[in-house]
Simulated scan of single mutants.
Amino acid sequence: MKCPNCSSSNIGKLSANQFYCWNCFIELTLENGRLLLNQVEEDGTLTTLDDLFSESERQAKANGF
C-alpha cells in the first residue's frame, strides 16, 4: 500500500476505511473504490485535496491503493 501523494508506504490504519500517511500527513478514506484525500489542519479540521488529483489517480486498485 502506497500513498498516492508521496508514494510512501508508511501508512497507518485509523479505522476500517481510513488511513493516514505519516510521511506527508494526509488522511486517506476509501469510499466506493475511490480514495478521498484530506489534509489534517492544526485545529483538527480536514481540508480536501481531491481537486489536486485526477479521478484515475484516486481509483483504489485491488491490491490496496
Rank of each mutant, 00 (worst) to 15 (best):
E41M: 15
L36D: 06
I26K: 13
T29A: 14
G33V: 10
E42Y: 10
L36A: 11
K2D: 09
S54C: 00
E31V: 14
G64Q: 10
C24M: 01
N63Y: 10
D43K: 01
E41N: 15
T29Q: 15
G12P: 00
Q39K: 09
S15W: 00
K13P: 09
D51M: 07
S9T: 06
C21I: 05
T48K: 02
N23V: 08
A16Y: 07
D50Q: 13
C3N: 05
E55H: 03
T29H: 13
E31T: 15
D50I: 14
A60V: 04
L52C: 08
E57V: 06
I26G: 09
A62H: 04
L37F: 03
E55R: 04
N17L: 10
C21A: 08
L35H: 09
K61T: 13
C24H: 05
E31F: 14
E27A: 13
S8T: 04
E57D: 02
R34E: 14
D43Q: 06
L49A: 00
A16N: 12
T47C: 10
S9L: 04
L35Y: 07
S54I: 04
E57S: 08
L52D: 10
C3S: 05
K2Y: 08
E55Q: 02
T48G: 08
F25R: 11
T29D: 15
S8G: 04
C3F: 06
Q18K: 12
T47R: 15
I26R: 13
W22M: 14
N63V: 12
S8V: 03
L30N: 05
E55K: 02
I26L: 08
F53H: 01
V40I: 10
C6A: 03
P4M: 01
M1W: 00
S9H: 04
L36N: 10
G64R: 02
L52N: 12
A62M: 08
Q39F: 12
